[in-house]
Design a protein around this nucleic acid. Structure first.
Length: 557
RNA sequence: UGGGGUGUAGCCAAGCGGUAAGGCAGCGGGUUUUGAUCCCGUCAUGCGAAGGUUCGAAUCCUUCCACCCCAGCCA
């Protein structure tokens, strides 16, 4: 890569570079640590690309670790979907999948150690009392009455917690740090709480579970993570993260760094809210094509490369920012333009009869207009064809610049085939257009028409007799508010009632009968589409519109 | 009003004392059998504000302003 085109390093890449140069780090180890309590979304994609990308670029490794410390919210379904999504995005984690839960024995030993050293205690204050004792931002907290229990008593109490002799909420294990700290996280944070729930990995082995704070840094240390990257809201937890690393005989000393999470306008990225959309039936599933989940975008037709490229493009910083969805859309179009085979599909068909037809002919079209290696496809050109209703008008006053399609009495190029002339518009009793009678201009296949014949433009078409029926689903943004999530708005109020349009009775070129869900196509002049993995059947293919073609013209008119 | 963080164009984002990269969007033009793609051009006398240091400041200092995060037995 030349000097002029090389992308500048982001702040984390700079840190890693320095650590590698100074010898502080021998080999960079990162991790992507989702909690399996929902499906991954575009925001996670940023974190995945960052963590795996960093390891990749610097010759290191990245683990996939489930931060499964709260069985109340987690589920096996989520761990499976997460593994799927990470793999689909194109990343491979180092070794086996890790689970925080597989370190529970070690955490327990370390908790015991803190107790023995007088650095942790069992506290019987209830939730309300705990809150009261904690104080608030400008007011220091006060010590729990249980803070100075003896080591022996703490050991005995903690054993009772572990043995299930207490109910949920009766007591917790707390670190003894500083109730007056200006950092709320240091006011004797919780280490363990009681949860009488069976866990998706450890079953009923435990009824006490470590908190995020007591688990995260130690997990990193156990796994030899060198750079533990999390989002901005955890910056306040860093002193606590470091406190545990200092107090405990951990095998390594990871460092936490924070970056700004991805926010997208017109989008909600909160697992809780996405789950609500699913649970309340506003969308058909976690992978509804309108969802910003990785699985939803996948079903919609986004490609792994387009998502990776997007994450690369938006950068990594510490300043909170909201990216325009247009940038994401640019990335899919960009990828699909290069890689999607072309096809024709008429969404709102109206019949065109070629009055001077010479019988069925076969038109040959490149699969991709500027990539020969994609090969060619054959299109049956029959006497009866379909074009889109919107591509025809009887209004002869429209200027050539304003309407580059078929006008009664004028000429248009049928993509990859003849130039035709519209001779007659046939109506039914109520005046609806039911057929266009047209004539083809001889010698215009692959050739310019003779002098004096000026087609207004090029439109797509499909054989009426040799094509397939299909359904097409058009999507608009799920939310009509740029910031559905902000302030005290109810994000459900911003739901766009027109986010899904189902179009029946579409006609597609025959080759599309072999379409598969993971293969995107460009339907020429319409946009990029892929088969819907959920609703498609062999009898009736259903195509999702991933994204329309860029349309500068529509904006100007 | 405690602590932590962030302010460079409509949206992202480089910049690390030597005179504001790049991308998206926009605008203007060219090519085109997709109103797409592609190509060319254009787009911050200005870096949250005000002072100061310096030959020279987006970069250093001071003060101020705005916004975000933290008081779950969530992560």
């Amino acid at each position: 890569m030349s000097e002029a085109t090389s992308k500048p390093l982001n702040f984390l890449e700079q840190i890693v570079t320095q650590d590698l140069e100074s010898g502080k780090t021998q080999k960079v180890v990162t991790r992507f640590p989702p909690e399996p309590n929902g499906y991954l979304h575009i925001g996670h994609a940023k974190s995945i690309c960052l963590n795996f990308g960093l390891a990749q670029r610097f010759g290191g490794e990245c683990n996939l670790r489930f931060d499964d410390t709260n069985p109340a919210k987690e589920d096996l379904e989520y761990v499976e979907s997460i593994m799927d999504d990470v793999r689909w995005l194109g990343f491979e984690w180092s070794g086996e999948v890790r689970y925080a839960s597989s370190y529970f024995d070690q955490f327990y030993q370390w908790a015991l150690l803190l107790i023995k050293e007088g650095k942790a205690y069992v506290c019987h204050l209830n939730a309300d009392e705990t809150r009261e004792y904690r104080g608030w931002a400008t007011k220091p907290g006060k010590d729990s009455p249980y803070r100075d229990r003896s080591v022996e008593e703490n050991l005995a109490e903690f054993e009772k917690m572990r043995a299930g002799e207490y109910a949920e909420g009766d007591c917790v294990l707390r670190a003894k740090i500083d109730m007056a700290s200006p950092n709320m996280n240091m006011r004797d944070p919780m280490l363990y709480r009681i949860r009488k729930q069976s866990h998706h990995q450890t079953g009923d082995k435990w009824c006490i579970y470590p908190t995020y704070d007591f688990a995260h840094g130690q997990e990193d240390a156990i796994e030899g993570v060198t750079h533990s990257i999390c989002t901005l809201e955890f910056a306040d937890h860093r002193p606590l993260y470091e406190w545990f690393i200092e107090q405990l005989p951990v095998p390594a000393e990871p460092t936490q760094y924070e970056f700004a999470r991805l926010e997208l306008n017109y989008t909600v990225t909160s697992k809780r809210k996405l789950k609500q959309l699913v649970d309340e039936g506003h969308v058909d599933a976690w992978n509804d094509p309108r969802m910003p989940t990785i699985s939803g975008m996948r079903r919609r037709g986004y490609t792994p490369a387009s998502l990776r490229n997007f994450c690369e493009m938006i950068g990594v910083t510490k300043s909170g920012s909201t990216i325009d969805v247009g940038q994401l859309e640019f990335c899919v179009r960009n990828d699909l333009n290069d890689n999607a085979p072309r096809a024709m599909c008429v969404l709102d068909p109206v019949k065109v009869t070629i009055t001077n037809s010479k019988g069925t002919e076969t038109m040959v079209q490149p699969v991709h207009p500027n990539k020969e290696k994609f090969g060619e496809r054959q299109l049956p050109f029959t006497q009866e064809l379909y074009i889109d209703r919107a591509d025809f008008t009887e209004d002869t006053t429209l200027s050539r610049k304003k309407f580059k399609r078929l006008v009664l009495g004028e000429y248009v190029r049928l993509r990859g085939a003849y130039v035709i002339k519209a001779d007659e518009a046939v109506k039914d009793d109520s005046g609806n257009l039911i057929e266009i009678k047209a004539s083809l201009i001889d010698g215009t296949v692959g050739e310019n028409p003779p002098e004096g014949i000026r087609p207004r433009g090029v439109i797509h078409w499909v054989s009426a007799t040799d094509s397939i029926d299909c359904e097409v689903r058009l999507y608009d943004r799920l939310f009509s508010d740029e910031a559905p999530d902000s302030g005290d708005k109810n994000f459900l109020d911003a739901l766009n009632s027109e986010s899904l349009t189902i179009v029946q009775g579409c006609k597609a070129e025959v080759g599309l009968a072999n379409a598969s869900a993971e293969q995107s196509y460009q339907f020429e002049r319409e946009g990029y589409f892929c088969l819907d993995s959920k609703y498609s059947t062999t009898e009736k293919p259903v195509f999702n519109r991933t994204i329309g073609l860029k349309d500068n013209w529509a904006k100007k008119v």
